[in-house]
Design a protein around this nucleic acid. Structure first.
Lengths: 202, 202
DNA sequence: AAAATTAGCTTACAGATGTAAGCCAAATGT
DNA sequence: ACATTTGGCTTACATCTGTAAGCTAATTTT
């Protein structure tokens, strides 16, 4: 089966080439089939042997990014077990991910509000998975009332993602400030969610 | 001075054409000079009589969008005076803006994490103004401790912007759900910020 | 061993794009 | 009244894009 292996190989080459070409100045939509093919070391038309479209490639990238996101959450849980401070550890783990895989994070960030509805849906799906797992965790491991967990998780993710986005353009020490600020915000949120009963009629 | 008037006129035509061509499926970066010129009713090269670049046009659009944002905040304040419910009124006002000027909001949303650093900076500046004005308001009119106002304002804006982004792709009744959820989140946040003293050493 | 499949290549084409060069006519300045 | 400025036009060019058509050689199937 050298045949299938080779195919998988250049498929990966294409995917890697695409990720590599993403940058602060270049989003997926301004990536051209020819450029990707060039970087992957194949002829432009050979691209079609693997993907029907640039869009198909893009959705594959989003899938991979979502996978990394979920691995990240598990990694954070491990760290919390040995460390204690839930919020601080979570944010620091996330920040490391953002800085270390900025292309991946940027892809999610941009395509979440990008021009392609299928892309937006794909990213939304991945983030929603992420939120759901986080909500589970909150229900099991914190004082958060069960029925508030999902809403709280979504707010947390919103704030942390935004912090990550800011961190992308920030210097390392500004990044620390951002981290600190975000910790404060999440603590307020957790405190509010734990102690504030929603008034049902207003 | 029919001369200057005419110039201002076609300048506006260009700006309006650009705004008009923005859509769910078309962001500013995928706007072409020729298309804009065509819609504005001028020859492609005449564009340069008004803007050096597409980038210059884009920054102008962002400026105008920021202006609308600040007007929005004042409008919300007026409504609050006659209505009472601060959080609910603010969010509802914002949602109306998002739905009624989706192209404008989308511009800010996308360019905030777009591929042009100058654009990102311009949007960040506008949003920061917005946050600062909101923080002022919080200090004057709510129970929020002065030194927390800025951080709380930023969290509120982050959550509300995110809600707006979700609302763009949502059906009207889903939009109501989003509004409701966001109100809850902001209340938690306000409650937390009012009652939770930051522990200084952890 | 012969036949079929297929990943990859080369060549080719029909758009679209940004923008340079230069003309024109009307408004403005003197 | 004459000279200048200038907003807009037309034409032209080089570049990049996606992708269709068809060949080749090697693997896989029969």
């Amino acid at each position: 089966m050298t045949r299938a292996q080779q195919k998988e190989r250049t498929r990966r080459a294409i995917i890697d080439a695409a990720f590599a070409q993403l940058s602060p100045d270049k989003g997926f939509s301004s990536l051209s089939l020819r450029e990707v093919a060039r970087e992957a070391g194949i002829a432009p038309t050979s691209f079609y042997r693997h993907f029907a479209d640039m869009d198909e490639l893009g959705l594959t990238l989003v899938d991979e990014a979502g996978l990394m996101l979920r691995q990240l959450l598990r990694q954070a849980r491990h760290r919390i077990e040995k460390n204690g401070s839930v919020i601080r550890t979570s944010i620091e783990t996330f920040m490391e991910f953002v800085v270390g895989n900025s292309n991946v994070f940027r892809l999610l960030l941009r395509e979440r509000s990008g021009t392609s509805a299928p892309f937006r849906r794909a990213v939304a799906r991945e983030i929603q998975h992420f939120c759901a797992e986080l909500a589970d965790y909150l229900r099991k491991e914190t004082a958060c009332p069960d029925e508030f967990a999902q809403v709280q998780a979504e707010a947390m993710v919103t704030l942390v993602f935004h912090a990550g986005a800011d961190a992308l353009d920030a210097s390392p020490d500004l990044r620390l400030q951002i981290t600190h600020k975000t910790i404060t915000q999440l603590r307020w949120l957790a405190h509010g969610a734990a102690g504030y009963a929603r008034r049902p009629k207003e």
